[in-house]
Computed example of a mutant assay.
Amino acid sequence: MQVQTRVDVFESIFQVFLALGTLVGVVVVAYTLYNAYKYRDTDDAKTDDSLPTLGELPTGGEGGKKLFLSFGISAIIVISLVIWTYGMLLYVEDPQDDFEEEPIDVEVVGDGFAWSFEYENGALERGTMTVPEDYPVAIQVTSGDVWHTFGISDLRVKADAIPGEYDETWFIADDADEDHRIECFELCGDQHTQMDGTVEVLPEDEFETWLDERFHLDISFEDPEGEPINDTGDLTLELVHQENDEFDEDLAYSYTEEDFDNDTISIEDIEQGGEYDLVIEFEEEEFETIEDELTITSPSSETYTLGEEDEDEDEEDDDNDEDEENDEEADNDDEEGGDDE
């Protein structure tokens, strides 16, 4: 069974209310016109026991049967409409049991008059939310500063963004050729009108490719003059997630010189975003070991300068030698001054 989107649900409610409202309006207006014509004033007075007389309270005809029938039909229509609408709104609130696939979880944060989106695997985007076509997306909305309201009018999505709290909702975008505008529906500050973004809808296979490429990391080397280094000799590279113990899979990656191309490597094996510890060790003594902390949440590249640390150490050694010579000269001057006395 095809899962209804939020747009489908609210369109159905609107169409039912419009159809019933039109039907009731036509019936009421038609019945009013009929009675106005039937009981119009003519020169020929008719003798009819059912006609009201001056000063007599109307009974609705036939002992009030018409009045009872009209109220009964109206009550049935209204109660049925309320029950059906309530059921549809319950589906909007929690349709999890009707989803054939597990929804994609996205955390939405409103902060600094902009929206950021963090996916289950740690990928982080700002300004643009990328989602698969015809696939449920579950979002948890919060704020990092003041109150906001996350809204996508085209997809009938609205959720409060409150600091320290999470408001959960969902949506399904069913057209990969159409983007949707994200807005803030809460007056949040002087740049409120500029707090917008875009929902980009991709076919499911393209979305999977896009999500896998979020953690593409390029690493290269250069000398202190900024020239690329293409021969560092044997080396080993270790990349370890700082919270490795919290995941079922081992998020530690190892590479050697054979994995490099002209001392440049493109790492595409990373499956989880977050904070990583990077260690690169060289067998050549002229290059110092590189230790760094990387935040990997989107495609990035790092270029490390080799040999600079050695030069800095030489400069420090020269400075220390000069300081020692100055200290010796000062001591000698003190000794000579003491001898003169």
Rank of each mutant, 00 (worst) to 15 (best):
I76V: 08
T22M: 11
E243Y: 10
W147P: 00
E246L: 14
Q194V: 01
T59D: 14
H180S: 12
L18V: 02
S301H: 11
T236E: 00
S301G: 13
P58Q: 04
H180M: 14
F150K: 00
E329N: 09
T297G: 01
V106T: 09
V16Y: 03
D134T: 01
L294G: 04
D44L: 15
L89H: 12
G164R: 08
G233L: 00
T236K: 04
L124K: 04
D245A: 13
F71M: 03
E271I: 13
A45E: 15
C188K: 10
A252W: 10
L187D: 13
E315L: 09
L187A: 12
D177N: 05
D179Q: 12
E208D: 15
Q4A: 12
Y253E: 06
Q15F: 15
L89P: 08
N332T: 07
L278W: 14
P228R: 10
R214A: 14
V131H: 02
A138K: 14
V3P: 05
E315T: 06
E222V: 08
I270Y: 01
P58D: 07
D218W: 05
A159R: 02
L51V: 09
E286H: 05
G151I: 02
E283S: 10
E271Y: 12
Y86K: 09
A123D: 07
E101H: 13
G112R: 14
L81H: 04
L155M: 15
F260H: 00
S220K: 11
